[in-house]
Structure formats: C-alpha cells, structure tokens
Design a protein around this nucleic acid. Sequence first.
DNA 1: CTGAAAGCGCTTACAG
DNA 2: CTGAAAGCGCTTACAG
Lengths: 354, 354
Amino acid sequence: MVSIKDVARLAGTSFKTVSRVINDDPAVREETRGKVLKAIGELGYRPNSAARTMRSQRSGVIGFISDRVTTQPHAGDILRGAQQVADAHDKVLMVVNIDRDAGFCHRQRALDMLLERRVEGLLYACDYHREVELPREMGMVPSVLANGFAPEGEVPTFLPDEQRAAREITRLLLDQGHRRIAYLGLNPRLAAASLRLAGYRQVLEEAGIGVDEALIQPALVGVPDGDERSTVEGAIDALLASSPRPTAILCGQDSTAMQLYLALACRGLCVGRDLAVASFDDQRPISTFLTPGLTTMRLPHLEMGQQAMHCLLAGPQEPGIVRLPFVRVERQSHRVAGMPSHPPLSESAVTDGL
Amino acid sequence: MVSIKDVARLAGTSFKTVSRVINDDPAVREETRGKVLKAIGELGYRPNSAARTMRSQRSGVIGFISDRVTTQPHAGDILRGAQQVADAHDKVLMVVNIDRDAGFCHRQRALDMLLERRVEGLLYACDYHREVELPREMGMVPSVLANGFAPEGEVPTFLPDEQRAAREITRLLLDQGHRRIAYLGLNPRLAAASLRLAGYRQVLEEAGIGVDEALIQPALVGVPDGDERSTVEGAIDALLASSPRPTAILCGQDSTAMQLYLALACRGLCVGRDLAVASFDDQRPISTFLTPGLTTMRLPHLEMGQQAMHCLLAGPQEPGIVRLPFVRVERQSHRVAGMPSHPPLSESAVTDGL
DNA sequence: CTGAAAGCGCTTACAG
DNA sequence: CTGAAAGCGCTTACAG
C-alpha cells in the first residue's frame, strides 16, 4: 500500500506536510497543498485508519449491537437512523448481530471484538419493544439503548411512546364520530400490549364514554419472533356479537388488522363501509396493500435510532427513559361513509398517497 | 488503556511472551501461560486491534455494502447469513447502508471509509433482485455481489433462482390435481417478473397442458421500495371470468396473495375450499398469518449471504452467476378439498407448523 | 521456550 | 508555513 511517505516523495515535501493536508490543517501554503493533493491523486493514496487510530487513540467507531433488528421487518430503520447521525458526526458504525439462538458465546465474542476495536460508544437496539439484559461490558464505554429497556435502567433509553400513540389513534376514531370502539389487542406477553390498552381505556374514560369490557379482546398472536398462528376468528365473532355492534375496531398491530379485514370479508362485512379499522406499527406492505389502505400509528424506528445516536455522541448523559411519539399515518380505513367527521386533534399526522 | 507491556510487567515476563499467549502460540510453557493469563484477567487487558492491524497488515474486516437490505423486510437475512460465515472465519463485518436517496456522495464516503479501514473484501447486497451499478472501488479488493447483478458481471454473483422456484411451485399445484392454474404476476419492471413467469409457462408446456393467456395477469403493484397501491381487483375479475374458472392461482408475491385472499372473500370465495393459492417470497407475517396459511417459495436470503461470504473468504474466484434455490414452504393454501393429491416432486420442501 | 530490536503508518508536541 | 524526533501497541524476523 502507498503511504504518506510515498506521497511526500512525489510531492517533494516532508511527510509531515502530507499529514497536514489530509487533516485539513489550514497552516499549509496553497501551492504546497496543491502539489500534495496532486500526488495523492496520482498514487491513489488513502490514509490508513489503523495507524491514525493507534496514534490518536480515537477509533471513530461506534458499536451497534443489533438484537435481531435486521430480522424484524422495519426495525432495521433503527440502524438507518443511527447511521445517518453517526455519519454527520464522522463516526462509523460497526454492526454486530446478536441472535438469541446463537447463544451467549456469540454475544460475548461480538462484544470482545467491539472492545478490541476500541469503540467510542455502544448502541444496543432491540427488534421489538421488550426488556433486555444488557451485557456488563456496556458499562465500560458510553452506552445507550433503543427499543428496549433494561431492568436496572442504567443507560439512556429510547422507547416508542405506546400509550400516547394509543390515545391518539383512539381519539382519531372518536373524532370520526365512533362511540362503540372495540379493541382487538396484542398478545399480553408483549410490553406494548398493556401500554396500548391503557391508552385506549384512558381516552374512552376521559371522553365520558367509558369502557365496555365486552369490546376488548386479546388477539392471541405470537410474539414477533414466533411463528405461532393466530386465530382471531373467535375474538372477532365475540366483538361482532356485542350489542350494539361496534362501529370501529382498533387492532393491536397491522397483521391483526390484516386478519380482521379477511375475517370481516368472509362475514360479508366491508372495512370502510360497515366498519372502521385502525391499527399500530405501519408494517408495510400490509398497511399499504390492504383495501382500503390501513390507518395506523407508525413506530418511530428511525427516530429511536437517530435520537439514541445523538445522545451517545453528545457526551455523558443521565440515564433515563425518553419516549418518542409514533407518527399517525392516515389512509382510508378509519373513515366510514355516513359518520360525522371532525378535524384531527394533533399536528403529527401524515397523510399517505391515496 | 492497559497494554501488552503492563501485562508483561505484572506477569514477570517480556511483552513478547504476552504476545505469544494472546496469539495462541504453542511455544509457551504452561506455567508461563498461566501467569500471563492471570495478569490479563486482573488487568482486564484487551488487545488493541488497530495495533495488530497496522503491524500485521491484515485488518480482519470485510465490508458489507447494504443497498437498503435493512429496509426491505427479510432482506436483512442476507446480512445474517454473511455474518455467520464471517464469524466462523474470524472476520468482522463493517456494514454501510447505501440509501438511494442519500445520493452518490454518501456512497462515495462509505466506500472511502471502508478502503481506509483496509477491508480485505467487499460484499455488495441488494434489497431485492435487480440490476446494480457497482462502484469502481470494488475492483480494488476482492468483491462479491448478492441479490443483484451488474451489467458487466465482473464479480461472483449470487442470485435467487427465480425460474426454478416458479417451476417447482407450479409443479406442486399440478401435483395437487390442478389443471387450470392462473398466474397473478409481478410488476414487469421487476427482474423476477419475467423469470417467474417463464418458469410457470415452462412447466405447463412440459406437462402438455399449454398456457392459456387469459389466465395470466400482471398485478400492477409497485416495486418494493414504492408506496404505490395495487388494484388487483380488475385482474382477479378477469381471471375468475375465464372459462372454465381456474382452480388455483399462483401469485407473484405474498402481498399480492394477501390482496387476493381479501378480494376472493369479498366475492364469497374461500381459499382452500373454492380455490388454491400459492405464492413467492415467504414474507412474514403475511404468509403465516393468512388463513389458510400461505404456501410459498421462500427467498434464499440467508443462503445468498452465506454463499457470497464463503466465496469471498475462499480466495480468488472466477466471476460468474450462482443461482440459489428457494425453499418450498408448504402451508395449507395449495390444498383444496376434493382435489386428487400427489406426493411432492422435490426434496427441498419444508413443512411449516400448521 | 524466551527475549531484544525493528518497524507498521500515522499524529503529537516541539522547534525553527 | 515547514520539518525532525518520538511514540501509539502491537507483530515480524532473528537470536539465543
């Protein structure tokens, strides 16, 4: 490989001057700089980052510990967000995947590797909102946590604001004139389950409508990493049998909404004509390809990645939880012909083509 | 940070002996090794990879250029596969995301970064099967391409075997006794579109059934990165109107199958009772959550990542295209009560719980 | 089995 | 504005 000395020889300067040029040191005469840049171009010189790291004692590397974020659809956006911010700060990301099935050994090796690379910080990201046990090594460098929470809670933590999202989407259905709003929920094992349900209850109580327990059904779907099949059929029949029949059904996640659309169609009912539907996550292509398009609360994956990385690069931070808002994506499913309609309550709405 | 010299001082050896221990050099007495390991443990010493890289001239890093693989659901499995193999070879991956919207500048910076880190190889991975223009820099280090193809075709390339998958799934429907098999295809702009269609045609021709052009409809769905809505309604009506009515419909992708299930339900038709359906991709949770479960050909994402990385680490390779088989995932949707059933043709079948 | 010397390619700290 | 020296933490190549 060509080194700084080769460049110096060709440019007719000392190698120290070359170092100044590649570090944008202003204390170099324009003419000298030109000669050096020309030599760099001719030789195809690239600085050796290992040498820089060793001498400067700064690696410029942030470790991204992916607890399967590249497996769960859309959770990869956490990585994208983190990368955008790291990029803007001239840091690079070293990504390691921690697969649960790979066992502890794999995780240990990954962490050793990151620490041997002298990462300047660690971002731990989960595939879905859940509790995680952080590796001890995370105490050795500045660390943050995205889309998960640790029992000890000792690092800055960025989570989706489940309860607020549930309040917002329930509010939206109320604003559409619905008063009988059912909730076809999540598997109770999920951290999001109780939070979303709580938000739903809260808004109905506040609105003075109150909660009809007959309108709440958990969908016994698997956790995101499972392959369990859901049978929402029973839950849907129970909801439809309640009297008066609900005019809107809020689903705990988009895949449940998909099952609901299908189950309703099999019963001769049509979303957008007979019933309104809304949901959580914005899991494409489900949410975009259903007819009518699914109105849903988009998980702030990108935002969690961005904010977590910002926090990490901003220097030492207090541990604590930051909850980030979902983005409301209004398509057509929350509208039913013949219902009185009101303007939305919040400004964070996004209206999606069609 | 603690260095090799600190360890040597504590262990009472020369620092060279410490180096031998951390490199598993057998030429160290057991007693000496024990003392060194003890000192390493007490001091929490970790080798500095920058120093090792500089001296040994080998970085141990492979660059993974992700052309949005973390954005497209399941394409992240390419990364997982690559990581598994890299791991087994004691290489680490440096992942960079190339977002199309981030422009050329971003891509250039990412490549510069990788080359400055002295990557020993580059793996370029695409989010979906398509043509890509490889950056020139890829000629400077050993490189491979996964899930995409370059016009010049100058690097080893790993692609899903679309045509073979189409043959296999069409065959499966034939074996179920179907003779009127419709094809609700992909957007013709997709590379997979013509290949899957060709496989379908080929099998029908070979079986002596011939192709009824009335049974072929393109679904005008968007390409995976778009947000275009599909209207398969017209296509489905056309298929159902053909005479005799098809008994099976093969979809170009799972999201189209989802739309099909729904459209059929709206018309009073039930998959598994009135019609068989099969598809491509195995895009969870669509394929697992539909009722009945969707029989589909799973894209070999994991396998592309594994094989591409294997190829990269195996040393210099001839450029050329390797097509990897999909995995047939049999759920329930290809079965219709009352059809004569035959055993599957191929061994690569996977049967998914329920 | 163990060690002293040289050097990988840079940046730091100091001089001029 | 430019340069000569020292050293980051290891491994390599050689000696004993």
